[in-house]
Design a protein around this nucleic acid. Structure first.
Lengths: 288, 288
DNA sequence: TACCCTGATGGATCGGGATCAACCGGCACC
DNA sequence: GGTGCCGGTTGATCCCGATCCATCAGGGTA
């Protein structure tokens, strides 16, 4: 769902992806969660306009009249149960999607059938951009829990893009953000040790929760250890051992999928690769 | 540089990134290489219109009148010497670039100063898309040899995007292709062994040379072993040993930066991860 | 020629993380 | 209750690739 928000200090209207969250939300939309019963379109739009996610919004010169057209690009939201897939690898490209609530993972399977998790997607994040190039989805998107998404059928979206100037710039920004996030993931996979990878993952998750106005120290992981391992290019055993080790170090507490970050400062230190380059740091990590 | 080509079989006009190549090119543009002396704009445009790169073109409903506007988005090409950077990490985002001839690498440096190669860019490929999200370049783009690029100043490009319908779709496709290629790189880094990584890299390079109508078995690597290693998440020694090993296996010949692929079929087999999953294949790779 | 510098190669060793295996707790199911 | 299954944890061992080191080939300079 696209939504508009008047910035408190900015003159222009702000355009954003993503909107009503269930669970921990603040303000106007928290009381109208609708995961169980399909909501009528009008109510959906209202919730969209009153969207409280500032971080996910970017300035765009768009007025109320344009907004109507924008809304036209959005089809009713879809609700997925845990394990349901939004689209599957090799499916024809029909729509882009934005996560409204819940969480998803994207997965590729190679010729041999074994898979790799490419990413996790939280509310306000876009899914499906890799398909625009080849008109076919290159990965499978699967819900990690009960998840609702906004569907943006691409033909309709394109019409709106031509009618609403500034919107395609917005879309390009979002897609570019996708590129940037994958680049940083590449660096993680290329140069970081296992422990640094996990630390970076947890911090990234914590930071994204923060953007959603959620608690940044209490993480409820919706993905399995297998998913985390696959995403980080490790095996489950390694991930499990690292959680145990981090707990022993007093950085966090682990109880199944429930993580509490006790020392965000230490976690931040553990993200830096300097850890293993300088001799002093080597000793330090040896002591740990 | 943007260029237009009438498809031989397709009714519509085709829009593409990328154009005149130096070195091994076929047909109309091969004789007018201009790396040494700056060419006047008109000649540049002519070479652009007669661009022979089919693979890099995608259908777009664009007529001759629109083309004029398109050309307006392109600034004079820039020529870089080996080692010159097109933009540096943290530079403000001003333009997108398309490689015309030569080759580039994109590199990120983390806080500690050590770097990782994110990608290599051949003629017809776009550089700088990661900067659209944050208005700042997240990586450094450096020429690996004498390289010429087309500069697309973003404000001008945006104007043209609003005026030429179908063009932003084109741009989204190209950016999406960037996402897709990074995803496949991620899978390589996450799941493949060192030898598979190098094989995949060489095959990708060979395939991209093919799209440029170049020889697909004779590769002149413009990047150093260090660059390759960094790109693949390995160290130079490993890359060097693997080249030697592959040569011993009769897959290719190596002479410094000059590679000849003798057995593309074997190279293809070496790309598959099945290599190390099934017991039989394990024996096979042990025998090798 | 001698000298230096950089990029590439090859050998010896070490260690981080994969692999294989056992085990445990929760849960659905008959 | 018993059984099987799945997700997660832990231990023992192994191996691939990193690390450290020496050497070599080219290319430039004096």
């Amino acid at each position: 769902m696209w939504c508009v928000k008047r910035g408190p200090t900015t003159a222009g209207v702000r355009l954003c992806f993503g909107l009503a969250l269930d669970g921990v939300t603040r303000g106007c939309v928290a009381h109208m969660e609708i995961n169980e019963t399909p909501l009528d379109i009008n109510q959906l739009r209202r919730s969209c306009r009153s969207c409280g996610l500032y971080e996910l919004c970017l300035p765009a010169g768009i007025n109320e009249a344009d907004l109507a057209q924008l809304d036209a690009a959005v089809r009713d939201k879809r609700v997925l149960a845990r394990g349901d897939s939004l689209f599957r690898q090799d499916d024809p490209f029909i729509s882009l999607y934005v996560v409204r609530s819940g969480s998803m993972k994207t997965v590729v399977a190679d010729a041999n059938g074994d898979t790799q998790v490419l990413g996790f997607h939280l509310p306000g994040e876009i899914v499906g951009v890799d398909a625009m190039a080849h008109d076919r989805h290159l990965c499978t998107a699967e819900a990690l829990e009960r998840t609702s998404v906004c569907e943006l059928p691409y033909p309709r979206l394109q019409q709106v893009l031509t009618q609403v100037p500034g919107l395609h710039r917005q879309l390009l920004r979002v897609v570019s953000r996708e590129v940037a996030s994958e680049q940083s993931h590449l660096v993680t996979m290329g140069r970081q040790q296992a422990q640094e990878r996990l630390a970076i993952f947890l911090r990234s998750l914590s930071e994204r929760f923060g953007r959603l106005s959620r608690d940044t120290v209490t993480l409820n992981l919706t993905m399995s250890r297998y998913d985390i391992a696959s995403y980080l290019g490790l095996v489950v055993e390694t991930v499990s051992r690292l959680f145990t080790k981090m707990e022993a170090m007093g950085v966090l507490t682990v109880s199944r999928k429930h993580i509490v970050i006790l020392r965000p400062d230490l976690l931040a230190v553990m993200c830096g690769s300097p850890g293993l380059k300088t001799p002093e740091a080597k000793q330090q990590s040896a002591r740990a």
